[in-house]
C-alpha cells in the first residue's frame, strides 16, 4: 500500500493536462516541420524559376509526407567503426535541445507551457545542448568529414551565441525582465511599441531605435549561424564536407537531424518574434487582438522569419571558417556591445 501510494504521489494532479501541454508543441512542431519543408522546396524552386515538387498531391503539397515516409523506409545504417552508443544517441540529443525550448515559448497569453521567470535564459541554455549532439555525431561517426564538420560547428555555435545573447540581453534591459510573457506584454499596443522600435515609451525613445534595429539584425544573423543555415552552413557545407557532421547518418536518424534543424529554425524565429517583433501582439494595437489572434500573430510572424531564413539560404554563398569567425567576433560582437551599451545608458537615464 505504501509503495502504491508513493507511485501515486509521483503522478501529479493534472497528469492529463501535463501530457496535453507536452504534446501540443510536438504536434505543432510536426505540422510546422512538414510545412517548412514544403516551403523550403517550393520557395527554393520558385526563386530558381522551377516549379518544385508537383507530383505528390495537388501542386506537390504532399511532398514532405512522402519524404518522411521515404526516410522511415530507408535502411538505418550504423558504420562498423562508429562508436555505436554515441552515434545512436546524437540525433536525439540534438532534437531534444530544439524541443526543450518549446517548454517556454508563449504561443498565446493563454498557452505558455511553463511560465518561468528566466525564459530567455532558459532558451539560450537548452539551445546549446545541440552542440553536444553535433560533436557526438561528428566524432562518433569516425569519418574525417564528419569530424571536421563537428569541429567547425562547435566553434561556430559558441562564437555566435555571444552576439546573439547580447542582442537578447538588450531586450531584457528594455523590458526589465527575462520572463517571456512580460516581454510580450511590454510590447503591447501596435507596431510602434515593439522592441525593434525601442519598445513602449515617449518620443525620446527615438534615441534607441537605430540600436534596436541593428540588434534585431544581429540576432537574425547570429541565429542563422546557430541553426547552421546558409551563409553559415559551414559545418555541413556540401561542397567541402559532403554533408558535415551527419554524413554517415541515414534513415530515421538523418530525419531527426533534419527535423531538429527545422525545429531550431522555428525556435530562433520565435525568439526573434518575441524579443523584437512583439510576440503575440497585433501590429495594429487593439485591432485584431485576442486569444485566437495571439496564436495567429505569433505563428505568422515566426513563419515569416522562417521564410526569411529560407530566402537567404537560396540567395547567398557560404562563408569560410575563418571569415565566419571574423564576422562573429569582429563585426557582430563589437556592434552588439556598442548597441547594448547605448541601450543600457538610455535605460539608466530614463
Amino acid at each position: 500500500m505504501e509503495t502504491i501510494n508513493f507511485v501515486y504521489n509521483l503522478i501529479p494532479d493534472q497528469f492529463i493536462a501535463i501530457i496535453v501541454i507536452c504534446t501540443i508543441p510536438l504536434i505543432f512542431l510536426i505540422v510546422y516541420a512538414l510545412l517548412a519543408i514544403l516551403g523550403e522546396l517550393k520557395i527554393s524552386a520558385w526563386i530558381q524559376e522551377r516549379l518544385g515538387p508537383m507530383r505528390t498531391g495537388p501542386w506537390g503539397i504532399l511532398q514532405p509526407i512522402a519524404e518522411v515516409v521515404k526516410l522511415i523506409q530507408k535502411e538505418d545504417l550504423t558504420p562498423d567503426t562508429a562508436n555505436k552508443p554515441l552515434f545512436n544517441l546524437a540525433p536525439f540529443i540534438i532534437f531534444m535541445g530544439a524541443y526543450a525550448s518549446f517548454a517556454v515559448i508563449p504561443f498565446s497569453r493563454y498557452f505558455i507551457p511553463s511560465d518561468i521567470n528566466i525564459g530567455l535564459f532558459y532558451i539560450f541554455a537548452v539551445g546549446s545542448i545541440a552542440v553536444i549532439g553535433i560533436v557526438m555525431g561528428g566524432w562518433a561517426s569516425n569519418n574525417k568529414y564528419s569530424l571536421l564538420g563537428a569541429m567547425r560547428s562547435v566553434a561556430q555555435i559558441i562564437s555566435y551565441e555571444i552576439p546573439g545573447a547580447m542582442a537578447i540581453l538588450s531586450v531584457a534591459v528594455l523590458a526589465s525582465s527575462l520572463n517571456l510573457e512580460k516581454i510580450n506584454i511590454a510590447q503591447e499596443g501596435g507596431i510602434w511599441n515593439w522592441f525593434v522600435f525601442g519598445g513602449q515609451g515617449s518620443w525620446d525613445k527615438l534615441w534607441v531605435v537605430p540600436f534596436t534595429l541593428i540588434l534585431s539584425l544581429i540576432y537574425l544573423i547570429s541565429s542563422l549561424a546557430e541553426t547552421n543555415r546558409t551563409p553559415f552552413d559551414i559545418p555541413e557545407g556540401e561542397s567541402e564536407l559532403v554533408a558535415g557532421y551527419h554524413t554517415e547518418y541515414s534513415g530515421m536518424k538523418f530525419a531527426m537531424f533534419f527535423f531538429a534543424e527545422y525545429a531550431n529554425m522555428f525556435v530562433v524565429a520565435a525568439v526573434l518574434t518575441i524579443t523584437f517583433f512583439g510576440g503575440w501582439n497585433s501590429p495594429f494595437g487593439n485591432f485584431m487582438q485576442g486569444p485566437g489572434w495571439d496564436v495567429f500573430w505569433f505563428v505568422g510572424k515566426s513563419f515569416f522569419f522562417v521564410i526569411v531564413q529560407i530566402w537567404l539560404r537560396w540567395t547567398l554563398p557560404r562563408l569560410r571558417v575563418d571569415q565566419l569567425m571574423y564576422v562573429g567576433w569582429k563585426v557582430l560582437l563589437p556592434f552588439s556591445f556598442i548597441c547594448f551599451l547605448f541601450i543600457s545608458l538610455f535605460r539608466m537615464i530614463n
Binding site: 524559376e49 522551377r50 546558409t230 561542397s239 554563398p317
Partner: peptide
Amino acid sequence: FGLDAGAFTPFLYFFR
C-alpha cells in the same frame, strides 16, 4: 564555381 562557394541559385539561372 558558385556552387562550390555554396550559391545554388546562380547555378540554375545559368543552366536555364
